[in-house]
Design a protein around this nucleic acid. Structure first.
Lengths: 155, 155
DNA sequence: ATGCTATTAAGAATGATTTGCAACTAGGCC
DNA sequence: GGCCTAGTTGCAAATCATTCTTAATAGCAT
């Protein structure tokens, strides 16, 4: 994961520039976030970061996630399972398809959908600030190609 | 609200048919659900139901909401504010536009969006079980028509 | 290195939701 | 109508995710 390392550095640079103090706990969290391509909850982040720096506590994870969210460095999601899940916000917006059987989260992005949403909001007299689209689905008995990997682009 | 009364009766009939015992507490909840066009949380339902039948307790609200959800009689939403909000699932699916300033929830439905979602899921090898689309927006300085009412139909 | 201040760990506090349990009741059966 | 029993209830205690309090610690500008 060479890219992850770079991303961690980028995070650090940006946050420092914004006047955020870099403690070893925060660095551990940034590393963890940079390395994962999934959508961990606070507890998962805590355990992963603990492996990097055992001096970290769960409250610090929560505090830091809040700061990162305020700075726009991460996104907080509230899927239907109750707890908050986090994901780094490295630029590009995308939506989620959640496998109802395995809980697996697949990311995708569709320009058509984005456009349509803006149109609908406009018709209702609104301007979209952000949005959340979650598809909950069941994998179909494969017809041809192999099961798609994590990041997909749809029409 | 004559329709609401009918809806409450329908709920009751269906649930009875499914072998669910009808207690006065459950009837109170069904009445409340049938009468509201908003998205109350457990506590709000509790207070409203309490007005109908003061023997009800909050735990019963939670227990009942779970049963209704399992039976498909209601939908549980997890908007970004943390707690669960409920809404009767009387047939027609719709999505939500949440006013970021007032918290007001506007319902809408777009066939185009529905179709597009199915297509996207299909491309990823999935079949949609359910989905959730939430637009968070800001009201635009009205250009012509009046502010739209609660249930809208978009393109 | 020093000092000021932000940040931390730990645990207590909070808010939403669930659960354990003894008392109660809906609804099938006579 | 009354009986019976499994399902349901209210209440309080338990759990879960998250936030707050506080005394101690550690960035980082100088």
């Amino acid at each position: 994961m060479i890219k992850a390392n770079q991303r961690a550095k980028d995070y650090e640079t940006h946050l420092r520039a914004a006047g955020v103090r870099m403690t070893k706990q925060r660095l551990a969290i940034l590393r963890v976030l940079a390395e994962t391509r999934s959508h961990p909850d606070a507890n998962e982040i805590f355990h992963l970061a603990f492996a990097v720096d055992p001096s970290i506590s769960l409250s610090t994870v929560y505090r830091t996630m809040r700061i990162l969210q305020e700075r726009g460095a991460i996104q907080r999601h509230a899927f239907d399972d109750g707890r908050a899940r986090f994901e780094h916000a490295d630029g590009e917006h995308h939506d989620h398809l959640i496998d109802v059987e395995t809980g697996k989260v697949i990311e995708f992005r569709s320009e058509k959908i984005e456009r349509l949403q803006a149109e609908i909001a406009a018709e209702l007299g609104y301007e979209i600030v952000r949005h959340k689209l979650e598809l909950y689905g069941r994998a179909r008995p494969m017809k041809g190609a192999a099961r798609p990997a994590t990041k997909k682009r749809a029409s």
